[in-house]
Amino acid sequence: MILSVENVSLAFGGVRALQEVSFDVQEHEVRAIIGPNGAGKSSMLNVLNGVYHPQTGKIRFRGEEFTDMESHRAAAMGIARTFQNIALFKGMTVLDNIMTGRNLKMRCSFLHQALWLGPAKREELEHRRAVEEIIDFLEIQHIRKTPVGRLPYGLQKRVELGRALAAEPKLLLLDEPMAGMNLEEKQDMCRFILDVNEQFGTTIVLIEHDMGVVMDISNRVVVLDYGRKIADGTPEEVRNNQRVIDAYLGVAH
């Protein structure tokens, strides 16, 4: 078990975004979080990597337990993520964006960098090599020197995945990686996610609205509704769960 969440509750004033949510993530699996709009899915991811701080509850990641996570500490522990509405650095090139993903692995001081001395140059080139591997993997060689702001949406999503991968995370959190994509782009993205999972052995937690995708690629699914967990299990179990059907389709009152 790489990650477990126990009784996490998060409230913004009177709005209770998460109530007593517990679930776990096994090493090397693809875990999906689904639920209707406003169910608390993105809040859950934000809790996991320290953007939001839950009022109660425990999170255990690779044997370490914490209630309050700082986002840069989460990054240092090996949690990387992408955002629902792309959070790339728009003024920088694709290459530079992915290079920032490796910032935690760079050790040289800024004085070395200013003088471009041996160690700083060597470090820069070493990481460039690692980043080029990711660029090859995601098939974005042709745009490596293009400023991210000029790219179409689908490619930006791919670059953002690249930036998260550059950190060589143990746990990858994907917030709606396929939102707004056409069928072909979705298939590409699915392939990349499965490849990451298989080739690098990265554990993946993803939020997605496309049920076909969720059922196809995830090993287990958590369902949230109004901040509470209403189901947890394999795609097959969740699909046939009456509470899930009610939450999505509504029930007669």
Partner: peptide, 21 residues
Amino acid sequence: SETGRAFMAVRDMDVAASVIG
């Protein structure tokens, strides 16, 4: 190099910058 990229990352989107460490 890394320092410059960190500066630009903070400029372009500070939340994302702190999430990637």
